[in-house]
Structure formats: C-alpha cells, structure tokens
Design a protein around this nucleic acid. Structure first.
Length: 267
DNA sequence: CTCAGTGTTCAGTG
DNA sequence: TCACTGAACACTGA
C-alpha cells in the first residue's frame, strides 16, 4: 500500500539488507508495462555487477545509487497501487507476482513484486534532474517548506483542497488516505477551494501533514501502530459508519478518488 | 458477475 | 497555454 511512509519503509529495508553489497544476479519476469518499451532483459543486464552505495527516495519514488563515481547507474522503482519490496534468502519466497529480483554476493535477495501492473521499473542516469522525479514538489518528510512557501501555491488555486493534496507537483508522497487524514485532523472540508483557505487553516494543514507523515514513518507504516484516533482505521476499506468518537463518516468522490470525511468536524 | 481500489497520466473541457 | 476534471490503465478480492 505505497504512499510515502510505505515507500520509506522499503527504502530502509533495502538499506539494511543490501547497502554496500554487489548484485551478482538479476532475475526478471517479462512485463512490457512495468519495464516500459525497454526490454526487461536489458534492464537486468545493466543492473548485474552493480554495487549499491545508497537507497534513495522522493515522494513515492525509490531508486538505488549504484556503481562508481563517474559511472553511476540508478535502478528505479515505482510501486503503483500494489507493488512492494521484499528481502529474503530463499527462492521459495518468490511468487507469481515477482517482477524483478536482485541476488547479492552474500545470498541476500531483494524482490520487487506487483500484482497489478500499475508501476514502473527503470534505469535512470540522473534521478533528481530527470523525469519523473524532477517534476515532483517537496517531500514532506525530508523537506517541509516554511508556512509561506507551503501556502503560496495553494491559495492561488481554484481546485478542491483534496485534489491539491493529491497533486505530486505540490507535495510528493501524499496519497488518498493521507490526504483524508490530514483534512480530518485539520478540520477542513475536502471540497473547500485553495483560494478559500484561511491563514489558520493553511497552518493546520501544514502541521498535520507533518505530524501524520512523521508518525507513520516512525512506525514503519505499520497500520496497527497508527494512533487509534486516526480516521484511517475507519475509512480504510469502509470498515465503519463512524469514527471512534461516534462521528458519522461520509464517502464522496472528490478529485477522482473516494474521499472519507466527517461532516460534523470538517465544516 | 460487478465494482472499488493505496497511483499516475493523458484527453477533453472551458 | 492554462487550470481543472474525469476516464483509463491492469488485476485482485470482496
């Protein structure tokens, strides 16, 4: 379930298991959507023999800094709606959704699996200055802007705040449930337009974005460890009619996504 | 059988 | 060209 906190958890997983190690074998499953037009075999060939210096992330995008200075190569992964990383040693851990696997010299394996074929595996040459990463806005975990810089783009726009929170060119890494959680905790109606937001609302939006993302990263995106007061537990999979406090939850379609919100709180 | 789903992109509209 | 909306993408699981 990849939004920023999940991707950050996989970044840490990869750092722990493969940093400083060399890829001695690459296994790929043919998939012209995940690997784009480029052949999966060419990707595998390019990755073989690389040493992983560092695992990096911006928003929901993850890549590895590999190779020697002057001859660096950057394997890149996007997890779409259903992708994930797994670290293991035994080939029996593989399943039919495994799209790519790195084997390292010490027997560690790192697998990218994706049941739905929405996602991407690529090779980048200069991650931060090339698409898609170059088009991203700020990463709220790594670089939360000042209140002034956070607010400026929002108050110019005439779209519902829910849509703007999902816009990766604004805040990279915020997805559907995080956007709903931010709006609930900040007590803002999801259909409120950017230009209608008050100073106090913008301030709450920024601080809730930070606290929600920091908390979910701190618990490695483990849903069971999210605070019980979060709307998340009741909106996810539409498991309840009300929040823990008995506030009725409404489901609407906003910004092209199902939006869970609490009319009695978000006015 | 139908439909919603954690994301992104692109065509279409005004 | 811009700002914004909504459909499409692929596939699983309820």
């Amino acid at each position: 379930m990849p939004e920023l906190p999940e991707v950050e958890a996989w970044r840490k997983l990869a750092e722990q298991h493969v940093r400083g190690k060399t890829i001695i074998k690459v296994t790929v499953r043919k998939d012209e959507i995940i690997f784009d037009q480029k052949s999966h075999t060419a990707w595998a060939r390019a990755c073989k023999g690389l040493a992983v210096n560092e695992v990096c992330r911006k928003g929901k995008h993850l890549w590895m800094d590999c190779g020697d200075p002057g001859a660096k190569v950057f394997p890149y992964f996007h997890f779409g709606m259903s992708g994930a990383f797994h670290a293991y040693r035994d080939e029996s851990e593989r399943d039919k959704y495994l799209k790519a696997e790195f084997l390292f010299e010490d027997g560690t394996r790192l697998g990218y699996r994706n049941a739905r074929r929405i996602g991407a595996v690529r090779l980048l040459t200069d991650p931060l200055s090339e698409e898609p990463i170059s088009k991203l806005g700020f990463d709220p975990f790594l670089n939360l802007p000042s209140l002034a810089d956070f607010s400026a783009p929002l108050r110019k726009r005439r779209a519902p705040i829910k849509s703007m929170l999902l816009d990766q060119k604004f805040a990279a890494g915020v997805g559907n449930w995080i956007a709903d959680e931010i709006l609930y905790q900040a007590k803002i109606h999801p259909r409120k337009l950017g230009i209608e937001l008050s100073e106090a609302e913008l301030k709450r939006l920024r601080s809730k974005m930070k606290s929600i993302i920091d908390k979910s990263v701190a618990v490695d995106a483990d849903k069971a460890r999210f605070p019980k007061t979060w709307l998340f537990h009741y909106r996810w999979g539409k498991t309840a009619e009300t929040t823990a406090k008995g506030e009725p939850i409404e489901f609407d379609r906003i910004g092209g996504r199902t939006t869970a919100w609490v009319p009695s709180v978000q006015t």
